[in-house]
Each structure stands twice: as C-alpha cells, then as structure tokens.
C-alpha cells in the first residue's frame, strides 16, 4: 500500500486512511484538516515531509508520514 512517505515532490494525493497513528497525533492532524478523503499536495520531501492542505503548509516527519495511507489522485 502506498504511504505518504513514498510520494514525490509536487504530487497530489488523496488520504485513504490513517491507521496505527497514535490518538494524539491523529487528532493533531485532524486539526489541520488532514481527514480521510482530503486531497493534499506534497511540497517537499527533505529534510522532512512538507505537505499543503488548502493553503496551510504542514511539516511532518517520516515516522508519521509512513502511517498515512494515500492514493495518487487523478
């Protein structure tokens, strides 16, 4: 299964699920609008993952990105 950590720069993807993330981290991500079904864009992959949700840029480290299942949006 594809995770956020596998996505390259400038690709847009859709969030499929966030299993295995701890409750607190999941809540934190929800707060920024990172829900299942949302389409987001990967802005950069180094040194950590930076994604864009609407006009918010969010940086998250790989240990989190690896637990976010995604699909490439058409």
């Amino acid at each position: 299964m594809l995770t956020l950590a596998d996505i390259k720069q400038d690709q847009s993807i859709r969030i499929v699920a966030m299993p295995e993330l701890s409750e607190s981290v999941r809540k934190h991500l929800h707060a920024y609008g990172l829900f299942t079904g949302r389409t987001i864009r990967v802005l950069s992959t180094r040194p950590e993952m930076t994604i864009q949700i609407e006009e918010t840029e969010l940086a998250l480290e790989y240990s989190v990105a690896r637990h976010i299942l995604v699909e490439v949006s058409r």
């Binding site: 981290v25 930076t50 840029e57 940086a59 998250l60 480290e61 240990s63 989190v64």
Partner: peptide, 9 residues
C-alpha cells in the same frame, strides 16, 4: 513525540 508543525507563510 513526532514532529508535526505548521509552517506559516
């Protein structure tokens, strides 16, 4: 705790 942080403009 893993890093999750907003980058404001």
């Amino acid at each position: 705790q893993p890093l999750v942080v907003e980058l404001p403009p």
